[in-house]
Design a protein around this nucleic acid. Structure first.
Length: 271
DNA sequence: AGGAAAACCTGCGTGC
DNA sequence: TGCACGCAGGTTTTCC
């Protein structure tokens, strides 16, 4: 579920329910996520007010006067607001109960997600300190990509998924942006010309923006129900379409593995 | 240093 | 029906 558009959709869905609210209680049902949920989080947060909800890379940042909760959804995490009491699922590991009676519940079957606490400046947290620019910000430019690519022999797909270079480009959107750029995921990064970097940066931005506008690839109603299918899936050119006819040229979409991840591309349209 | 691989988990679809 | 296997939207750590 969660690539950057899904995290951004989550942020926008949750913020109105959380900002300005006070934490009544914190429930940790299973602390064993990617890293342990800090055992002292309940005492740290009880009585604290959520000042602001924001996002850095795929982390959701929940700022309080005393510090910040860093929330990551990993591969299978999702967050929901509940207005009525509801028995927790076996994968509901964490929740924040608000003084207005609502609660925010984290479900994460694979437990690759995380809930962390940071006092002081959020940017200094070890997991955030070395992150590259946000893909939708002006700092992510063709020159930035081109410079980084010069001394890299790795395939371009691995490079755009490297969070030290640019954050938030996950497997789906890496595949889609490369197709839309006409660039094969196998191309050694240093072989990419500056004009092709321009194209790729443009397509990364537009692919992510369009997915956010459509609510991501999985759509959630944060108050009433479980996740539904999002609309961006209907816009996939190659992701998950191995063997299908390329929507542009009709040749079958190729499926390979790079760095233990699936890559999909059209060998005619991408070079 | 870059790059490849392993590591952390559960669930689901497939094929025998 | 059961079981083994491979795969899944992420990211850090380890090893060469």
């Amino acid at each position: 579920m969660p690539e950057l558009p899904e995290v951004e959709t989550t942020l926008r869905g949750l913020a109105p329910h959380l900002e300005g609210q006070t934490i009544a209680e914190v429930v940790i049902r299973n602390a064993k996520l990617r890293w342990p949920i800090p055992a002292d989080l309940p005492q740290l947060l009880r009585g604290q007010t959520v000042r602001q909800l924001s996002r850095r890379a795929k982390y959701l940042l929940m700022r309080f006067d005393a510090g910040t909760v860093l929330l990551h959804l990993g591969m299978s995490g999702s967050l929901r607001i509940l207005s009525e009491p509801q028995a927790p699922d076996k994968h509901d590991h964490f929740e924040l109960q608000l003084s207005n009676g609502q609660l925010m519940r984290l479900r994460d079957p694979r437990r690759f997600g995380s809930v962390l606490w940071q006092t002081g400046h959020t940017e200094t947290h070890p997991l955030l300190a070395k992150l590259g620019p946000e893909p939708l910000q002006a700092e992510f430019t063709a020159e930035h990509l081109y410079q980084a690519a010069q001394h890299r022999r790795a395939a371009i797909k691995l490079l755009i998924m490297d969070s030290a270079l640019v954050v938030g480009v996950g497997n789906i959107y890496a595949n889609e942006a490369l197709f839309r750029s006409g660039i094969t995921p196998l191309l050694p990064a240093h072989q990419l010309s500056l004009p092709r970097c321009e194209k790729l940066v443009t397509e990364i931005k537009s692919t992510l923006s369009e997915a956010i506008a459509l609510g991501g690839s999985s759509l959630r109603d944060y108050v009433n129900s479980d996740g539904k299918q999002g609309y961006f899936q209907q816009h996939y050119w190659v992701y998950g379409l191995a063997g299908a006819a390329c929507r542009h040229c009709g040749h079958p979409v190729q499926h390979i593995r790079q760095a233990q991840r699936s890559s999909f591309y059209c060998s005619t349209c991408q070079s």
